[in-house]
Design a protein around this nucleic acid. Structure first.
Length: 569
DNA sequence: TGGCAAATACTG
DNA sequence: CAGTAT
DNA sequence: GCCA
């Protein structure tokens, strides 16, 4: 059992020092609110245990902010050791002059320190240690951290996870009697108290080696907004035949790859780079030329050069051959199966959809997703979207002719086919409650009775629900289509139109722009005077600027109006 | 080095 | 609450 | 992965 709570009086938190001698004497540590201190009662020892390295320093500060104590010596109160990625287990033992660590929790291999092998006796299935740093970050999100010895491999993600992960499990305390790390200053309680007090008073964590910038940060950029995708006209053309057509195809494959392995940021970067490259009017053949394009950095620029020279990209071939990845992709295309479930299935040894059907435990929705795997993963021709929408529209008008149905998503952007059918339902002057009641209690049952709606995947059960997800099937067809009914009061129609029209990049761009202007955009409206909590980004609602009129939202954001067909980024 | 959109709402 | 979907 |  854990040694619990208070560290002995002798162990203190080492002083967090400023890197630069000048300026503020004390680093700014802001303890998070008590109920969020997920590391409360835990005692961390870092290896190396100094804050001279900026990355480690950051982690130390975060740890303290979230309630941990930073032990300046390795002692028997230490519950967790966080080892830099440049060191391995052997080096740690050697430094501590120990033969072994009485580790308890070895279950989480993602954070296992290089060179550490669990005791042979343990019946753990041998899994490869994911030591290639670049890929590791992908696997971090879903795991709960438990490991006693953590490898601080991935700095940025790690610090993020500090925030979101639940409290780490405690462990038995290692043996006492340990050498004294010489580089660590030995402070004691007075300073601990001081640090805590100062921490409570101080501002959000900031890079203290940076001067206050607020003033001159606003440079000449009178057109900083140009960097936002939503400011740019885009006519879905010029790409297929443009000068960089082939390069774009290959890059798109890479983007898809990152999408599939759920690396959202790389995926985003690739999509942005693709978008930027598509706008080029000349062929980009060299790294240098590519680098000059906003949105393309050195990494993608190199790949562009490789693609042009060899008409190929080796990385892509490699990615395509990864069997486990293939399996995960296959599973994640099932409605109701995300990364987590897919990994569980794969770990259980299932390889095919058939395996799942026969052996796996499935939720109701997942079963539907499998039964209609091909249906749900095929595109819906534009004409068919119209038929589905027409049926809903007709039925709804039959109930109340004042209802309005808008077909959203890629259909509204003019696409020739869509992934699913999004129908936005509203009625001028009606409350959301009235709309919900009509749709849920009358429309859905009616269409279900008529065998048009054939499955309910997610239906509002709460009093404030605003959507219905399911499947529909045309009378003369056997193909099920994913269909979503979105209920929106008239006051929010504009924001909803904007939101459900997309595309996603365009939306993100608009929202990012709004937030940079001190506003906030969501599916209900545009708000101003948004109060953002210090450092972290909690916010107060703000006041509504516009929600009803789509065009007015563009105006309020000072974005030139763009019809749906031009919102493809 | 940190941010990258943002929220709702379902299932289990 | 975590996971998933949108 | 890109950018500030």
């Amino acid at each position: 059992m854990p040694p619990s709570s208070a560290p002995p009086a002798s162990s203190a938190i080492p002083m967090i020092k400023n890197k630069k001698g000048k300026g503020k004497q004390v680093v700014e540590i802001k303890l998070v609110p008590e109920d969020q201190r997920i590391f409360q009662g835990l005692h961390f020892y870092f290896f190396p245990n100094s804050d001279t390295h900026p990355g480690r320093r950051q982690r130390i500060i975060k740890a303290i902010e979230y309630g941990a104590s930073w032990q300046d010596k390795f002692n028997d109160t230490v519950t967790h050791i966080i080892v830099d990625r440049d060191y391995d287990f052997e080096q740690l033992l050697k430094y501590l002059k120990l033969k072994e660590l009485p580790l308890v929790d070895t279950s989480t291999i993602e954070f296992r320190v290089k060179g550490y092998e669990p005791p042979a006796s343990s019946a753990t299935i041998a899994q490869p240690i994911p030591s290639q740093a670049s890929e590791v970050s992908l696997q971090l999100k879903p795991v709960k951290r438990k490991a006693v010895v953590l490898s601080s491999q991935v700095t940025s993600e790690a610090s993020l996870n500090l925030v979101s992960s639940s409290a780490a499990s405690l462990s038995n305390s290692p043996a006492p009697g340990v050498p004294d790390p010489q580089q660590v200053p030995n402070k004691d309680e007075d300073e601990l108290d001081t640090a805590i007090r100062q921490a409570k008073e101080s501002h959000p964590l900031a890079s203290d080696d940076e001067d206050d910038v607020e003033g001159h940060k606003r440079r000449k950029t009178n057109n900083w907004q140009d960097k936002f995708q939503c400011m740019h006209k885009h006519t879905g053309k010029s790409g297929d035949q443009g000068p960089n057509a082939h390069t774009l195809v290959v890059l798109q494959e890479l983007a898809d790859h990152y999408d599939q392995i759920r690396d959202q940021w790389r995926c985003k970067s690739y999509r942005q780079a693709i978008s930027a490259l598509r706008k080029q009017t000349i062929k980009i053949s060299t790294k240098e030329a590519a680098m000059r394009v906003y949105g393309i950095g050195s990494s993608i620029a190199e790949k562009i050069e490789e693609i042009v020279r060899t008409t190929h990209l080796r990385k892509l071939d490699f990615a395509k051959l990864d069997e486990r990845q293939q399996i995960l992709n296959r599973f994640m295309k099932i409605y109701g199966v995300g990364l987590h479930a897919a990994e569980n299935f794969a770990s259980a040894g299932y390889k095919t959809i058939d395996d799942l059907l026969q052996k796996a435990e499935l939720t109701d929705n997942q079963r539907i997703g499998i039964d209609h795997y091909d249906d749900f993963n095929s595109r819906v021709p534009r004409a068919e979207v119209e038929k589905h929408a027409g049926i809903v529209k007709k039925a709804l008008k039959g109930l109340d002719k004042n209802y309005i149905v808008n077909t959203m998503g890629s259909y509204r952007r003019g696409a020739q086919d869509s992934g699913d059918i999004d129908l936005l339902i509203t009625k001028p002057g009606a409350s959301i409650d009235e709309i919900r009641t009509t749709v849920m209690d009358r429309l859905v049952p009616l269409l279900t009775k008529h065998k048009f709606l054939v499955a309910a995947l997610a239906q509002t059960s709460q009093a404030d629900g605003t959507k219905w997800h399911g499947a529909s099937c045309l009378p003369d067809s056997s193909t099920w289509r994913r269909i979503d009914l979105l209920l929106v009061p008239e006051e929010e129609l504009g924001a909803a139109l904007l939101y459900f029209t997309g595309n996603d990049i365009f939306n993100r761009s608009m929202r990012l722009l709004a937030s940079k202007k001190g506003m906030r955009l969501n599916q209900r409206g545009l708000y101003k005077d948004v109060l953002r909590d210090y450092g972290r980004e909690k916010l107060s609602e703000g006041t509504l600027v516009e929600g009803k009129d789509e065009r007015k939202i563009f105006e309020a954001l000072d974005v030139p109006w763009r019809p749906p067909e031009h919102r493809i980024c």
